[in-house]
């Protein structure tokens, strides 16, 4: 599943303003090469904005600062993106959706590879179905296959599993982790359980800056039922709730 080349580390530092007010200031975030970085935090704090800035998407605000890959090359064209909604056009079947990137770029679609990836995410018998004939979990699998098809060294995931039920979500986390190997991944999430399972590093984004969460010694993908995992998840939830109380006061 790994794309060619070596995944770059990514550094973002700077200040972001929207409507004249700073959303964050002096933020320094590093995504380590080939690792999963999870970004948590209260709603409206700018998690998705950070992801969109790295992706080079419009944010509706002003960013002053730097975003760079540590290998010096531009990030444009090296990023694959997954959002909370599956973003499967309702008029395309799974296979065509997976090939969408190639068609949008005017490249020759590699059907053979698309079929392999669709098989890899467990949708082999569904590749001619449209999204309306698939469950939410299957649709996110198709979106993952499309993300893998893009064959990029950086994957930016904006709450991709948040609309799934708990069991499907755990399954998707495992599949995504196994398939997105050797890539630099940023996962924006509001779920401490997900962050602790998947993150090599987990940060809380707060108005005053980043706060790194303590994680178990072992590496992800962390076992769902291990005591150390559960403990770290509970700690992270406690911290999130404390932040929420502080903000309310």
């Amino acid at each position: 599943m790994s794309p060619g080349g070596r995944a770059p580390g990514i550094d973002l530092d700077g200040r972001f303003e929207i409507g004249g007010a700073a959303l964050f200031d002096g933020l320094r975030l590093r995504l380590e090469p080939g690792r999963w970085t999870c970004l948590l935090g209260p709603s409206g704090v700018g998690k998705s904005t950070v992801l969109r800035l790295i992706a080079g998407l419009v944010t509706g605000g002003r960013f002053d600062g730097r975003i760079r890959a540590d290998d010096g090359a531009a990030l444009k064209g090296r990023i694959a993106y997954m959002a909370q909604s599956d973003l499967l056009p309702p008029w395309l079947n799974v296979e065509r959706s997976v090939l969408l990137g190639a068609r949008l770029r005017g490249e020759r679609p590699n059907r053979e590879r698309a079929r392999r990836l669709i098989e890899r995410v467990g949708l082999a018998s569904h590749r001619h179905k449209r999204p309306s004939a698939l469950s939410g979990g299957m649709r996110q699998r198709a979106a993952l296959a499309r993300c893998l098809m893009e064959d990029r060294l950086v994957a930016l995931l904006d709450e991709p599993f948040s609309a799934l039920d708990a069991a499907t979500r755990a399954e998707m986390q495992e599949l995504a982790f196994e398939t997105l190997t050797e890539r630099t991944v940023l996962l924006v999430t509001h779920d401490p359980v997900e962050a602790v399972r998947l993150g090599h590093r987990v940060y809380l984004l707060l108005p005053e800056g980043l706060e790194e969460a303590r994680l178990p010694e072992n590496v992800p993908l962390r076992a769902v039922y291990a005591d150390a995992t559960l403990h770290a998840q509970a700690e992270l939830l406690r911290r999130l709730r404390a932040v929420r109380l502080q903000r309310r006061a």
């Binding site: 998407l57 444009k76 959002a83 969408l100 990137g101 949008l104 770029r105 930016l156």
Partner: peptide
């Protein structure tokens, strides 16, 4: 749907292909 356009942007899509493959349908 702006989400489709974001996706197309990260895919490095050509604008006229976005028009005919996403916007028109």
């Amino acid at each position: 749907d702006p989400g489709f356009l974001d996706l197309a942007e990260t895919m490095g899509a050509q604008p006229e292909r976005v028009l005919f493959l996403l916007r028109v349908p």
